[in-house]
Simulated assay, not measured.
Amino acid sequence: MSWQWDPTLYEGSAEYYAVGRMPYPQAIADAIRDALDLDGTGGYLDIGCGPGSLTTLVAPLFERATGVDADQGMIRVAKANAPEIDWRCMRAEELPADLGDQRLITFAQSFHWFDRPLVAGIVRGMLQPGGAVVHVGATTHEGIEGSTTPRDEIRGLITEYLGSTRRAGQGVLTDGTAGGENAIFAAAGFDGPQVVEVERGELLERSEDQIVASVFSLSGAAPHLFGDRREAFERDLRQLLRDHSPEGTFVERARGITLSVWR
């Protein structure tokens, strides 16, 4: 894709991300532990960690844990929530830095934002013998069929304010985010993937504030994109939500998660 990263990608979204995204289930950590036969030793690196949603879940399986993200706000929120973890504000392309060998490296809803061939090659060189990279395929800002949040109407409202082409930082994503991760990892010399499915489907009750936060947690609806119309957008968004649920509660049915393990 022709889009180029810039530091405004998630500008102003960090606090919303921590509140608006549905939490990762403990089953992810359990599945990773079992797939990698972990014994509590070694290092763990989460790249594109955001506010640490996955990092803090998996970190207890290791001697040391590091979360890396290019957004200063994300790192600030992560540090406040889990000061015992080593948080670094840096781009994935700047690795390996001084982080040393890792037993596990994860990408959760982040790999598509990077120079993927470059980063895949870098992380291959960071793994200790027997280590693995896990690509976490997940969507946590919205649920699947059975959810009551009016997501189609929310998307329509975003389009009214920002246009039909998806925004991302100072650029646009005319064709959406890039796919084809398997080919990237294979070309970098990884074997795999071993695919582990984490089944979900539970119903999570969400408040109006959490749904608003889930919208502002998106790169395509980051607060800065609305400029001086941000307050008007939030006012219209809340009215839309209240029209659907005057009591201010919604249900999201959690989506299953795919773990692709590369060695």
Rank of each mutant, 00 (worst) to 15 (best):
L9N: 00
Y10C: 00
Y10E: 04
Y10W: 12
E11L: 07
G12C: 12
A14G: 05
E15V: 07
E15W: 05
E15T: 13
E15P: 02
Y17T: 02
A18C: 09
R21I: 04
M22P: 00
P23H: 04
P25E: 09
P25A: 07
I28C: 14
A29L: 11
A29T: 09
A31V: 09
I32C: 14
D34P: 08
D34A: 15
D34M: 13
A35Q: 12
L36P: 08
L36F: 11
D37I: 11
D37Y: 13
L38V: 05
D39Q: 11
G40S: 04
G40I: 06
T41R: 11
T41Y: 02
Y44N: 10
L45N: 08
L45F: 12
C49G: 06
C49I: 06
C49E: 05
G50P: 05
S53D: 12
L54R: 02
T55S: 14
T55C: 03
T56K: 13
V58I: 14
A59W: 01
A59S: 15
A59N: 09
F62K: 14
F62N: 11
A65T: 14
G67N: 04
V68Y: 03
D69F: 06
A70F: 00
A70K: 00
Q72D: 12
Q72C: 03
G73C: 11
G73A: 09
M74D: 00
I75Q: 00
I75M: 01
V77R: 00
K79D: 13
K79Y: 11
A80W: 07
A80K: 12
N81P: 00
A82L: 05
D86V: 06
W87N: 02
C89D: 05
R91H: 13
E93W: 10
E93R: 10
E93H: 14
E94P: 09
P96V: 02
P96G: 01
A97W: 06
D98K: 10
L99Y: 03
R103E: 11
R103A: 10
I105H: 00
F107V: 15
A108K: 08
A108F: 08
S110F: 03
S110I: 10
S110T: 14
S110V: 09
F111H: 03
F111N: 00
W113M: 01
W113A: 01
D115V: 09
D115E: 15
R116I: 07
R116M: 08
L118N: 09
V119S: 05
A120C: 11
I122A: 06
V123H: 05
V123E: 06
R124T: 01
G125F: 08
G125L: 06
M126D: 11
G130F: 12
G131N: 11
G131W: 00
A132H: 12
V133P: 01
V133K: 01
H135L: 15
G137F: 05
G137R: 07
A138I: 03
T139W: 05
T140M: 11
G143P: 01
I144S: 13
E145T: 15
E145V: 15
G146L: 14
G146E: 15
